[in-house]
Design a protein around this nucleic acid. Structure first.
Length: 258
DNA sequence: ATGACGCATCGAATGCGA
């Protein structure tokens, strides 16, 4: 069973890329972030024709918005972080009844945070605290759990194209990395690092200054699997192919196979 | 310090992303 996370930077602008990519990569579930559309604008019809008949959507106008697209039934859909009041649509959870058994998916578009010391950074810290407690509770109820999405955190120096020049800047701060580590300590594993990976593997590249061409990127999109699933993980990889297409998202899809 | 690029917004300049 394959499960993918992809920040599409507007599903309206990227629908054709999603259709083209899933045609070549018919993953069981696709977790999207930054839909930038309201629920009524979600393209159910086109996705159903592509095989994704089961979609759990939590949209928002202009900003944010997340969804889980699935070939298999989804149930017990929960929007937002239980116990944390948030005006943004950033988290959606659902239980997937797939061929590999039942898996609880938590798909998140983590707060960017802009700059350490800013109000938005404070929001990011509070949001991460709320998420931590929510994931702790979900893990207790669902041992077979995957937390995935756009974390907006480069967990280690090797996850950044310039760890020295960008030390303690956004995505690289000790505080953000501590939060990432605390999520891991709940009983999760960074599936990407379970396997040998190419040097300088990233999942996001700036649109500007030829960021992709120069491989000036960050690995900020992650798939964390619970210990109950860890032994079943067969692979995890970034697919840079759609980043090379015309008008791409600035993020590439990351896929885990269990 | 700023901008570079892309997307969205009722129509142009601005907010936001990372």
């Amino acid at each position: 069973m394959k499960i993918t996370t992809w920040n599409v930077n507007s599903l309206t602008a990227r629908l054709q890329h999603v259709l083209d990519w899933t045609a070549a990569n018919p993953v069981d579930a696709l977790c999207l972030q930054e839909l930038k559309l309201t629920d009524d604008k979600f393209p159910h019809e086109a996705l159903r024709e592509a095989g994704y008949a089961h979609c759990a959507v939590f949209g928002q106008k202009t900003y944010n918005g997340v969804a889980i697209l699935s070939r298999h039934p989804l149930r017990d859909v929960v929007r937002n972080i239980n116990g944390f009041s948030d005006e943004h649509s950033r988290v959606i959870a659902a239980t997937l009844d797939g061929p590999g058994g039942e898996v609880r998916l938590i798909n998140g578009y983590f707060v960017n945070g802009q700059e350490p010391g800013s109000e938005k950074f404070e929001y990011k810290m509070n949001w991460l605290r709320g998420l931590h407690d929510y994931v702790r509770d979900e893990l207790a109820a669902h041992p077979r759990l995957i937390l995935l999405g756009d974390f907006n955190i480069a967990p280690q120096d090797r996850d950044s194209y310039d760890p020295v020049g960008l030390r303690e800047t956004i995505h690289h701060t000790t505080q953000e990395r501590d939060h990432f580590r605390k999520l891991i300590e709940l009983g999760l594993c960074d599936s990407f690092r379970m396997f040998e990976q190419p040097e300088k593997s990233y999942s996001w590249w700036d649109y500007r200054m030829l960021g992709y061409q120069k491989n000036r990127g960050l690995r900020i999109d992650h798939i964390l699997v619970s210990h109950s699933l860890q032994a079943q993980v067969k692979s995890c990889s970034v697919d840079r192919t759609p980043r090379k297409w015309q008008k791409p998202s600035d993020h590439a899809p990351v896929t885990v196979e269990i």
